[in-house]
């Protein structure tokens, strides 16, 4: 659906986007993750044909961003950063204007607008002026603008920036719902957002893609191994002999010892094995008392920090 190769955009000597290549399949929700100024917005502006790249190509739905921008634009819905709107226009007027330019026949416009207003929960504000709207409604109106022509591809630049937690959840739900039928690219510098909505994440830093994969894959990559914390009551020596004998365990260490009875261990696994179950059986077999068993994965945050700051 989207094929980007070696995309570069320079501002003076500074490359905002530096040789980015990636592909996106139909129906994927892909997140661009990166610190501010990493090149996310510039990449999106190139994909929507607002900016032209200095080098490289981007082909979306079979149309090249440089050669056939008009055909490409017909198939894309774009929500720019900060949800810009004509503040002097009425909400209904605005949607009508977009529908007209989007070539929706006059007879169908009313129906389309109604449908999109339902989807984006805009019915309450249809008769208002854009400047009267709260940030949340502005965001939704701008999203409605991007959806009105039923595009195959949606490009959303920081769709939840500046919203309160309730609104963020609403918009996320909306994006997930839309994402069932459409290809969606969204950008964010908020990690939980990307892991909550996206099937795949591209981490961008200083104009380059530094990592890509599902949120889980990326988390696993950060440490390579998962860590399990257990609290056990039992004899220390017996426990440790047993732990040493288990092939699934790479290493372990005591992190707390409480009066000789309660022991806290940090255990690192040997990869993808199901260590939880093995540990459970171990405690049952030996009649040790297990008071806590907790798995900890490296969060996306760790990956992000490692990739964007750690390298410097």
């Amino acid at each position: 659906m989207i094929r980007v190769s070696n995309l570069t955009k320079r501002y003076g000597n500074n490359a905002a986007v530096d040789g980015i290549s990636f592909g996106i399949r139909k129906g994927e929700i892909v997140g661009f993750l990166g610190p501010n100024g990493a090149g996310k917005t510039t990449t999106m502006r190139i994909l929507t044909s607002f900016l032209a790249p200095d080098e490289g190509t981007a082909v979306i739905a079979g149309f090249d961003v440089i050669k056939e921008p008009l055909e490409l634009r017909k198939r894309i819905g774009y929500l720019p950063e900060n949800a810009p709107l004509y503040l002097d226009m009425g909400v209904l007027d605005y949607l009508n204007f977009i529908a007209e330019i989007r070539d929706i026949p006059a007879g169908e416009r009313g129906m389309r607008i109604k449908k999109i207003a339902d989807l984006c929960a805009l019915n309450k504000v249809l008769k208002k002026n854009a400047y009267e709207l709260s940030k949340g409604y502005r965001q939704r109106l701008c999203l409605a603008q991007a959806l009105i022509h039923n595009p195959d591809i949606l490009i959303l630049d920081e769709p939840t920036a500046g919203l309160d937690p309730n609104q963020i959840i609403e918009i996320r739900e909306l994006i997930k719902e839309i994402g069932r039928e459409k290809t969606v690219i969204l950008s964010s510098h908020i990690l939980s957002e990307v892991s909550a909505t996206c099937g795949r994440v591209l981490i961008i830093n200083e104009g380059k893609i530094v990592a890509s994969g599902t949120p889980e894959e990326l988390s696993n990559r950060a440490t390579g191994k998962e860590k399990i914390y257990i609290n056990l009551k039992g004899q220390r020596e017996a426990i440790e002999t047993r732990l040493r004998s288990m092939s699934e365990i790479a290493s372990f260490r005591v992190i707390e010892e409480n009066g000789g009875e309660l022991l806290k261990y940090e255990i690192e696994s040997n990869g993808d094995t199901n260590l939880n179950e093995a540990l459970f059986h171990m405690t049952v077999d030996n009649r040790w008392v297990l008071t806590e068993l907790r798995k900890e994965k490296a969060s996306l945050e760790d990956v992000f920090l490692q990739l964007t700051i750690g390298e410097k």
Partner: peptide, 9 residues
């Protein structure tokens, strides 16, 4: 709004 306007067909 220029960004929306100039990415319309």
């Amino acid at each position: 709004t220029l960004e929306i306007l100039m990415t319309l067909p």
